[in-house]
């Protein structure tokens, strides 16, 4: 029999421990980045086959509305980040107020997004109209679904009001924010 050696790899601090916040949320953030990254890359790859058609199709989107939505989301993300600080300071009323404002901006985002969808629908533009719209509906639709989920999640963590819960909920919200700042230039500007 050999005596157990005192130091094993397992006893060393893991690099995972240095990651701020909930590990599972980071797994989700990376997964979402992979999905949206692949979707945007596929969008740009298909665009090579028909640049003129893509440029024409893009004019039907609300570019200004989407630009405003960027400001709306980063501001909402800032409020969520402040809410995390409030949670750590134990200020429940403040954190709930901040999360409510952040969620309200999420609703503003959805209203602007909805008006774009409504205009497209009125013009008879759907998923199958052009490859551009297949992608723009898929990508922005998936993103909008995450905004809805995020609003619900912020409500939930606001009710729980523990620092850990608020941090996790806010991390999801930042991920939504992050995806948008990558999606917006590719779909609306390029």
């Amino acid at each position: 029999m050999t005596a157990p050696t005192p130091t094993r790899p397992q006893d060393q601090p893991s690099v995972l421990d240095s990651l701020p916040g909930e590990l599972m949320m980071w797994v989700l953030i990376l997964s979402e980045l992979a999905v949206f990254g692949a979707g945007l890359a596929a969008f740009l790859a298909v665009r090579i086959t028909d640049p003129a058609g893509f440029a024409e199709a893009q004019t039907h989107l609300h570019r200004t509305g989407a630009g405003i939505n960027t400001v709306v989301l980063v501001t909402s993300g800032w409020l969520a980040a402040l809410a995390v600080q409030a949670a750590e300071a134990g200020r429940k009323v403040r954190l709930r107020g901040l999360l409510a404002l952040a969620s309200a901006l999420g609703v503003v985002f959805l209203v602007l997004k909805g008006s774009e969808y409504a205009d497209l629908a009125r013009a008879g533009i759907g998923f199958e109209t052009h490859a551009f719209f297949t992608f723009s509906y898929l990508l922005t639709g998936f993103h909008a679904a995450h905004v809805i989920a995020g609003i619900l999640l912020l409500g939930l963590v606001g009710a729980l009001a523990t620092p850990r819960a608020v941090e996790t909920g806010a991390a999801f919200w930042h991920m939504v924010d992050l995806v948008w700042v990558l999606l917006f230039p590719v779909v609306y500007l390029l």
């Binding site: 997964s31 992979a34 692949a38 979707g39 596929a42 998923f127 199958e128 992608f135 898929l138």
Partner: peptide
């Protein structure tokens, strides 16, 4: 519908 081709390709790759 055709959008499944992209959803399927991207998610199943993961």
């Amino acid at each position: 519908p055709g959008y499944w081709q992209w959803i399927g390709s991207i998610f199943s790759t993961l």
